[in-house]
């Protein structure tokens, strides 16, 4: 692919100026441009329209475009900031920014809370937690007795729901994560620090002077 095609494709709807995206996220302009290379790859795997469709997201995560997964669905929905069923470039960069090693911890905590608040009630409820545990067991082909699932959920809830009202609010979540930092491990992607090395071809397509 030559520079002409790359530059023409940048005019497609959904493309946003890397300098604007860099200003709003922990990424530099070069890193945003490198992310554009990744975005182009993901968004053209099934339909070449510079939009990541759910099936393309599933294909990238599972090597299978039909594999449904509760958590992948939640991530997709959170990335889809405009809630129009596809992930645009700007949404991709802004959402991945939360996973940058230098992103504020508070953003990671809030993202994880919204991820687990399946029904968007502003709370993580016991039923939601149980549903997620069952989804994980199903995904992993693990069989655990319902009694044991109840025990795990009860124990976690008694640790996290410090006010004892049967639901975890954002404040309780923050305290719980502070006591269990491993819960945020998957909210940081070390790859994002080296993104320009992973996708060096952006240098050929770069339009902007780097600010750093």
């Amino acid at each position: 692919m030559g520079c002409y095609i790359s530059k023409r494709s940048k005019k497609l709807p959904g493309y946003e100026d890397p300098t604007v995206l860099a200003a709003e996220t922990p990424f530099t302009v070069s890193e945003v441009e490198a992310l554009y290379e990744l975005f182009k790859k993901l968004s053209s795997s099934i339909i070449n329209d510079e939009l990541i469709h759910k099936e393309e997201f599933q294909l990238a995560l599972f090597r299978n475009s039909n594999k449904r997964n509760l958590f992948a669905d939640r991530i997709f929905d959170l990335f889809d900031l405009k809630r129009n069923g596809v992930i645009e470039f700007g949404e991709f960069v802004r959402s991945l920014g939360v996973f940058h090693p230098n992103a504020p911890q508070a953003d990671k905590i809030s993202f994880a809370f919204r991820l687990y608040d399946l029904r968007h009630t502003g709370y993580i409820e016991r039923e939601e937690l149980k549903e997620m545990v069952l989804a994980l067991l199903h995904e992993s082909d693990l069989t655990i007795s319902d009694d044991f699932v109840e025990t795990i959920v009860d124990k976690t809830f008694s640790d996290a729901d410090s006010k004892g009202d049967g639901r975890i609010d954002p404040e309780e979540w923050k305290d719980f994560v502070a006591r269990n930092p491993a819960l945020l491990k998957n909210m940081t992607l070390p790859y994002l620090k080296d993104i320009t090395l992973a996708f060096p071809s952006f240098i050929m397509n770069s339009e902007a002077e780097d600010s750093e």
């Binding site: 995560l61 997964n69 509760l70 958590f71 992948a72 991530i75 025990t151 976690t156 790859y191």
Partner: peptide
């Protein structure tokens, strides 16, 4: 005594939450 597994820790191992896969060639 083994520590009881934290439900959120269990959930966080989901393949669907491993976005690192997006960066694999």
């Amino acid at each position: 005594r083994p520590t009881m597994m934290n439900a959120f820790e269990l959930i966080s191992t989901s393949q669907g939450l491993n976005l690192g896969t997006l960066f694999e060639k």
